[in-house]
Computed example of a mutant assay.
Amino acid sequence: MVTNPMDYVDQMAKAGASGFTLHVEVAKENWQELVENIKSVGMRPGVALKPGTPVEQVYPLVLKPRFGGQKFMPNMMDKVRALRNKYPTLDIEVDGGLGPSTIDAAAAAGANCIVAGSSVYNFTYPDYF
């Protein structure tokens, strides 16, 4: 998560990114402008929220939460289910502890985009990141 995602939109687009996921916690004040900027450079906007953030905070934004090696949090799937029920055609991404033993739970909750970093690359970030 970055504190000013607007600063990274152009850089990510120039690097060839097709999507840009922002954290709802840092985009509360300017999310509409940020989403428009993301779209204007040809990327798909996405939104992530921390485990402690109520799912309702993303409802106005509907159009990741820590570092590699995070454990899967099955209790967060209630948020996925709530989003899927409210927005049946929404792309919903789950990131954090996804792999062979957890992907079915995320998909059953309604996720249709899965991020599997550490389970694929067997890598975790040091604590100072």
Rank of each mutant, 00 (worst) to 15 (best):
55 V>I: 10
4 N>G: 06
13 A>L: 06
69 G>Y: 10
9 V>K: 02
36 E>T: 15
19 G>T: 09
118 S>F: 14
108 A>I: 11
108 A>Q: 14
27 A>F: 00
6 M>Y: 10
43 M>W: 06
76 M>I: 04
125 Y>P: 10
69 G>F: 12
92 I>K: 01
74 P>M: 09
93 E>F: 05
115 V>T: 06
30 N>K: 05
78 D>G: 12
74 P>V: 12
32 Q>H: 12
86 K>N: 15
4 N>E: 08
103 I>V: 11
18 S>E: 15
74 P>N: 09
39 K>W: 09
67 F>A: 14
26 V>D: 06
25 E>C: 03
29 E>V: 10
60 P>R: 04
31 W>G: 06
76 M>P: 01
89 T>E: 14
91 D>H: 13
107 A>C: 13
125 Y>N: 13
31 W>E: 01
123 F>K: 14
64 K>L: 11
41 V>T: 09
79 K>L: 07
99 G>L: 14
12 M>C: 11
34 L>P: 06
86 K>F: 12
70 Q>G: 08
92 I>P: 01
95 D>W: 01
52 G>M: 13
10 D>R: 09
116 A>Y: 10
103 I>N: 02
5 P>R: 01
25 E>G: 03
104 D>E: 12
34 L>D: 05
49 L>G: 00
14 K>G: 11
64 K>E: 12
61 L>M: 15
23 H>K: 02
24 V>D: 00
99 G>C: 11
122 N>A: 14
126 P>M: 15
85 N>M: 12
125 Y>V: 13
78 D>S: 14
71 K>A: 10
41 V>K: 00
80 V>M: 00
104 D>S: 07
14 K>H: 12
109 A>K: 03
16 G>Y: 11
43 M>L: 02
20 F>H: 00
77 M>Q: 07
4 N>W: 06
112 N>V: 02
